[in-house]
Design a protein around this nucleic acid. Sequence first.
DNA 1: ACCCACTTTGGTACTGAGTACCACTTTGAG
DNA 2: CTCAAAGTGGTACTCAGTACCAAAGTGGGT
Lengths: 202, 202
Amino acid sequence: MSDTPRQRGTLRDRTRRAMRDEVSAVATRLFAEQGCDNTTVEQIAAEAGLSRTTFFRYFGTKEDVVLTWLEDLGPGLAAAFAARPAGEHAWVSLRRAFDVLLEINADAPERALTFQRMLKGNPTMMARYRDKQQKWEDLLVAAWKQPRGAGDPVPRALVASAIACLNASFEAWEACDGTVAREELLDRAMNALAAVGTATET
Amino acid sequence: MSDTPRQRGTLRDRTRRAMRDEVSAVATRLFAEQGCDNTTVEQIAAEAGLSRTTFFRYFGTKEDVVLTWLEDLGPGLAAAFAARPAGEHAWVSLRRAFDVLLEINADAPERALTFQRMLKGNPTMMARYRDKQQKWEDLLVAAWKQPRGAGDPVPRALVASAIACLNASFEAWEACDGTVAREELLDRAMNALAAVGTATET
DNA sequence: ACCCACTTTGGTACTGAGTACCACTTTGAG
DNA sequence: CTCAAAGTGGTACTCAGTACCAAAGTGGGT
């Protein structure tokens, strides 16, 4: 009658998570201090008190150390999307699902800005970031209400476009140094797409 | 009175281009035969008759050897977009600009399918592919008709969404083994976005 | 024909990410 | 306490990408 699942998974899971968080914190600091390119895995490992080998057991790549949390957001995002009412248009459902993301760091815009700038400043990091979003995309497409055939481009088109709007809004947010709310910018972006039909059909 | 520009740039440019094409052909063959991961730059260079060093002078990365032509498409794409009538809605302009891309390999669908599958089969390749499309995105945003401020997410949202639709249509096209025309699939994807407004406003 | 500056090329050596494999230690269950 | 499983660290390796240098080729001017 082991009550291991009493407190968020087994003890190993919890220590593992704690380890990850700590290494992430160390890496974030180092990246900020001296740039991502100038920071080696060796250095992160040394500073965090583990071996290079073990580092790669926790994180698949060097960049993952500050991006894994994004990947972890995927399931929650897909769940939020799936939980929207069946009759609602997918575009609206996607917009509402993104509320989950907008809550993150809502109270610490400075951190979000720093993160955003780190992404833009490093091509490799940016590429990994897009990898994570690709996984979001796959999850969201899989969570599509009435599944259509694989030959139908529409679900993927809508999901990927929504994510594109999300990124555009983030970029605009960073460009104006966070002076305009992210919700506002995302609404503007996604509404601009929604307005296409009404504009071209007249 | 050197008539160097008589025939598409200087002689050096032409030889350089010829070199690139040949190395690309060799690499494409090797990638197809034994997979991208199992092919080293050393091997490509040896097979193509140049040194590893010189290879990296022609192509920034190993993957570039089969992706550079995509990057080269960027300016033409942006030009096609900029050439659309000023009054036309950007969404339509983007759709029409993409005709430039759909013409490519239109007569050799088999090659396009092979290329598509190679992309999907290799994460690194896929990442580089997205890099190229990011450059398309930047060029298209820069070619935007009446430039808006950097804090406006709309241009980037529309451009990135259009590219997302393009990719979705390519994926669907690959999923159905090219049995449905790419134009058809792209129209379906982009019209689905355009239909959002009319659907949600009722 | 020769010379000269410029470009291209190949070779060597290096850094650093990521992988494979090994022996050693720790952990938890019975 | 025992044992098997999981976690850890060390070593060695491959390979992409970069830096640098010396040799060869190229084209124009005299």
